[in-house]
Design a protein around this nucleic acid. Structure first.
Lengths: 201, 201, 201, 201
DNA sequence: CATGAATGAGTGTTCATTCAT
DNA sequence: AATGAATGAACACTCATTCAT
């Protein structure tokens, strides 16, 4: 017990990620300089470059770590039939997954212009787009697409823009999920045949 | 003493605003340098400083011009009683107002981190917050606040993140508004008395 | 008389070129930092960037200015028939031209590795290569090509590597030119017919 | 007690030299970083520092190994009387020696500016200067010095700048040596007495 | 025999801003 | 109404080198 037995070669890499994440969230990606990260950590800028190839690479590592729940969710969803029940479950799970992944989505959300031409920006956007694509899968009427979009936005944006709503984060999550599922309930199930075809893509 | 009496001294100021807006939208606020704006316009950087005090000042001017519809909407809404009917109408009008004001909201949306500590950023956020506050006014149950939030997010974020939904911008707007109003329909009317108190804040 | 009448808007650009040239020659291109150039001139690094787009651009400007005599020589030579007499005259003129252009060739000579992948490096090498090509033009026997190469190298490298030979720069130039012409004298004139064909390229 | 008794501890030192040489030749001394060398070899930078004290030390070792033929040639030449026959033979042998030593001279040639203030740079230049001094030894007329210089330059620079001349490296070497010897033939033998005096220096 | 971790000094480059003219 | 010239502060990144293990 106590003092981590085998590790401790150097936890600097993780400390960098943690510090960088905090700063990226609180000050923005572009406005956080490597100097700041280094100073906060009590190391030199060069030390950051020993552990990461570029500034973007730091964000990439963070994204890989924190984004895992959503990535796994995508894997799961792509194996399911594109039924309404799947979509409901996907929305539920997405709501939960966002809980832990929130910081990176927050960063994506607030730094879109900056991340526009960074590879990592594309990666981040892809995750969101994929969830969205899976939710819209199947042969839906235009108005139904709107309902789906509303449901997804409610869960997605609700996760990091509604601190003012009151209650705990978990209470907010549940309440918003409820509303989103309710909105989704108004969607007429797509024709299973065409749904299968579209879902296979 | 011709057609345009006092004006026409030079339309440079407006041209700057227009060019800056385009660049702020397409490349982001931070990533757009004054050099770029100047070059695109065929003037020197110093010329920009003749017309505007700072870079932020350019964005301020843009915000004032484009944000007027929403500002007027806020003035209107603050004079109304905080009934559900008012909220429905507010949502409808907000949906419309966003149509023309979209570019600045888009800029706010994609550059939040950058605008965080700029006065103009606060101004922009205030407009959104105020609309939101007006929509949430009254003594609502927690779950009802969630519905309101969902409705607002659907209209707000739907305006600049759903190009992929297909249809024309106007079709998307109407469809999303419909869904939002539907979501709002589930809200139990607040107690008028307490509503007045809360709405005054 | 005195104090340059019309100019004097700012001779900074030229002063930068002059200072940079001195430093590039004495310390090498890579080892001369923009900070050094700026400090030597009593301006900031940013001032250099007002006048030149990049560090390489400074060298480019120097090269354009100093290389003019050789460029003009090339233009002249390409209009002449590729006879031995032309080549003798070309060698004489090249010897003279090198006198003023020497500093850039010196820079090229001593910084080849650095300039290898810079556009300006290619430009500089092209000038040398072109002179060489013109001297080798025509249908010469292999041993004659060797003589030509020897003559060119004698004039070219002699210009900036033989300070130790004694005498004034002009005396050295003449003596080396004499030897080079003598070496060239051993070249059997190429068949005029094929010479014309080859020279046209 | 097999074939290689004491050696074979590790050939890393030699592998470093070989890799470094390749990179110094192809990318230049300054532009080749220790990181590159280490990566190419699959070891860490620190490993390089186990075998060599500094970056310059690597080049020194290479220079010692590859420069041996020229060093031996110098020893030989300093024991000979400074006759024209000696000089002819020296030129012949130098031409041959350059064949194997070429890479370091190539490095010297292309990185002069960089090597200017390195001890190894001086060493490298010394070898060239010494050959040159031995060739110029004796009481020659100014014009004769010019002939000697031309001959030396033809052999020296011809070795690494004339790939374009066609033929094999050996054919080029022979042809250029022939021209150089021919140029040397025009030198009037120095007064043996003064030659001895001058040659002793 | 070699590595992992880190440093300090430096690089070229960009930016918003200023001001005399 | 606008320019030409310049600044100071910052930035991401690289390098040769060191040292405990």
């Amino acid at each position: 017990m106590g003092s981590t037995p085998q590790a401790r070669r150097s936890d600097t890499r993780e400390r960098i990620q943690k510090t960088a994440l905090d700063l990226f969230v609180s000050r923005g990606y572009e406005k956080t300089s490597l100097r700041e990260i280094a100073e906060e950590l009590g190391v030199t800028k060069a030390a950051l470059y020993y552990h990461f190839k570029t500034k973007e690479d730091i964000l990439s590592a963070i994204s890989r770590d924190l984004g895992r729940p959503v990535d796994e969710l995508i894997v799961w969803a792509e194996e399911q039939p594109p039924t309404m029940e799947t979509k409901r479950e996907l929305l539920r799970r997405y709501s939960v997954a966002l809980g832990s992944a929130m910081p990176i989505y927050h960063i994506l959300q607030e730094n879109q212009a900056t991340l526009r031409d960074l590879a990592i920006g594309q990666e981040l956007r892809d995750r969101v787009t994929t969830i969205s694509r899976l939710m819209h899968a199947g042969d839906l009427a235009f108005e139904c697409h709107a309902r789906v979009a509303s449901a997804v936005m409610t869960v997605h944006f609700g996760a990091f823009t509604l601190d003012a709503l009151g209650g705990t984060a978990e209470e907010r999550r549940e309440a918003l999920l409820e509303v989103a599922l309710d909105t989704l309930a108004g969607v007429r199930a797509p024709d299973p045949a065409s749904a299968l075809a579209a879902g296979g893509n």
